[in-house]
């Protein structure tokens, strides 16, 4: 599922900028950064397994909301297809 959560970290290899999720949570996140490497937003969109709880300071996105959010943050991304991988997380396939 997609959740919008705060970005934490200091930007080092030891403490990278990353989505604020419970320790051990597997994720794939979309975190745009500027030329200085700093995140341009305070929140990010992360995909986590459906069986994980939505973080208390996070917000659940429907997949359609997620696509709209991704496009809003980076108009160059061409999301053309969505599918559900197995019974769990959503996968977005980029256009070529």
């Amino acid at each position: 599922m997609f959740v919008e959560v705060p970005i934490i970290g200091t930007g080092t290899m030891r403490d990278p900028f990353r989505p604020k999720l419970p320790a051990g949570t597997e994720y794939s996140a979309y975190i745009p950064t500027g030329k200085d490497g700093q995140p341009v937003l305070t929140n990010c969109l992360a995909c986590i397994a459906d069986n994980r709880p939505v973080p208390s300071d996070g917000r659940l996105f429907a997949k359609e909301d997620a696509v709209l959010s991704i496009k809003e943050r980076d108009a160059t991304i061409d999301v053309t297809k969505l599918k559900v991988a197995g019974a769990a997380a959503v996968e977005a396939i980029r256009g070529t």
Binding site: G9, G11, M13, E26, A29, G37
Partner: peptide, 30 residues
């Protein structure tokens, strides 16, 4: 100091990007 990194640490493998030396983790799997 700008580019992509994939590395292992004790409990996961992650992909991240460094931009001007600032590191962001983009994905992590146990």
């Amino acid at each position: 100091n700008t580019g992509y990194v994939a590395a292992v640490q004790f409990n996961d493998i992650f992909i991240g990007k460094k931009v001007a030396g600032v590191f962001t983790s983009l994905a992590s799997v146990a």
